[in-house]
Computed example of a mutant assay.
Amino acid sequence: MNQNIQQFKADFFKALAHPMRIQILEALCTGDKTVNELQTIVGSEGSAVSQQLSILRSKNVVQGVKEGTSVIYSLRDPLIQDLLAVAKQIFDNHLVDAISLLEGMRNEPESIKHLD
């Protein structure tokens, strides 16, 4: 059972492992969108957005519902919003650590900086 969960997690994170897919998910956090709306937000052509949506759909991260001639995409699970927020917090924490390290290096006396 534990191995199944680990495999699910690995597959799930692989589905998220592309900047455009993250951008699409962040856009969907604000509400359902058509492919055309996502193209505008992402700033990419339709085939690239459709390809990334296909990957997200195949991993059950997003869902599409046909309305007339359009497909409206939405997050399959609202917890994805929380996951993206936590990822941003982790990034912010790493950024704060990097800034602290740089500030510490800037505050070192010149004689110590040249020892490296």
Results as ranks from 00 to 15, higher is better:
Gly68Ser: 00
Gln6Arg: 14
Lys66Cys: 05
His94Pro: 02
Ala87Lys: 01
Gln23Arg: 15
Gln89Leu: 13
Lys59His: 07
Asp92Thr: 12
Ser44His: 06
Val62Ile: 15
Asp92His: 12
Asn2Ser: 07
Gly31Val: 10
Lys59Phe: 05
Glu67His: 15
Leu79Gly: 02
Gln23His: 13
Ala87Trp: 04
Gln52His: 10
Leu115Tyr: 02
Val65Gln: 15
Gly31Cys: 01
Leu75Met: 08
Gln6Ile: 10
Ile55Gln: 11
Gly64Phe: 10
Leu83Arg: 00
Pro109Lys: 09
Val71Thr: 14
Asp77Gln: 07
Gly104Asn: 00
Gly64Tyr: 00
Gln7Trp: 04
His94Arg: 14
Gly68Trp: 00
Leu83Ala: 09
Ile90Pro: 09
Leu83Pro: 01
Asp82Met: 09
Leu115Thr: 02
Gly68Thr: 00
Leu16Asn: 03
Leu95Cys: 05
Phe13Val: 05
Arg76His: 06
Asn93Leu: 15
Glu45Trp: 05
Leu75Lys: 01
Ile90Thr: 08
Ala15Asp: 07
Ile41Asn: 01
Tyr73Leu: 11
Glu37Met: 15
Pro19Ser: 12
Asn107Leu: 14
Val86Ala: 00
Ala17Lys: 08
Thr34Gln: 07
Val49Lys: 00
Leu95Phe: 12
Pro109Cys: 13
Leu38Gln: 03
Thr69Cys: 00
Ser100Ala: 13
Glu110Ile: 13
Ser70Thr: 08
Ser54Arg: 09
Leu38Thr: 02
Gln89Val: 14
Phe8Val: 02
Lys14Tyr: 10
Ile22Asp: 05
Asp116His: 04
Asn93Trp: 08
Gln51Asn: 10
Gln6Ala: 15
Gln89Tyr: 10
Leu95Ala: 06
Ile22Thr: 06
Ile112Pro: 03
Tyr73Trp: 12
Met1Phe: 04
Ile24Cys: 12
Ile55Phe: 03
Gly68Val: 02
Ala17Glu: 13
Leu56Phe: 11
Gly68Glu: 06
Glu45Asp: 15
His94Asn: 15
Asp82Lys: 04
Val96Gln: 11
Phe13His: 03
Asp92Gln: 12
Asp92Glu: 14
Tyr73Ile: 11
Arg57Val: 12
Lys33Arg: 13
Asp82Ser: 08
Val86Cys: 02
Gly104Phe: 03
Ala27Ser: 15
Ser58Met: 14
Gly31Ile: 11
Thr30Arg: 11
Ser70Cys: 10
Leu84Ala: 09
Gly104Cys: 09
Phe13Glu: 03
Val42Pro: 01
Val61Thr: 02
Val49Glu: 00
Asp116Gly: 05
Met20Trp: 02
Ser50Cys: 09
Val96Pro: 02
Gly64Leu: 03
Arg76Asn: 12
Asn60Gln: 14
Phe8Arg: 06
Ser54Trp: 01
Met105Glu: 09
Ala48Glu: 06
Phe12His: 04
Lys33His: 05
Val62Gly: 07
Ser50Ile: 08
Glu26Gln: 15
Lys33Leu: 10
Pro78Trp: 02
Arg106Gly: 08
Ala98Tyr: 10
Asp32Ala: 12
Asn36Ile: 08
Leu25Tyr: 04
Arg76Gly: 11
Glu67Val: 15
Ser70Leu: 11
Glu67Cys: 15
Asn60Trp: 11
Thr34Gly: 05
Leu115Val: 01
Thr69Leu: 13
Ala85Val: 08
Ile5Ser: 09
Val65His: 11
Glu26Asn: 10
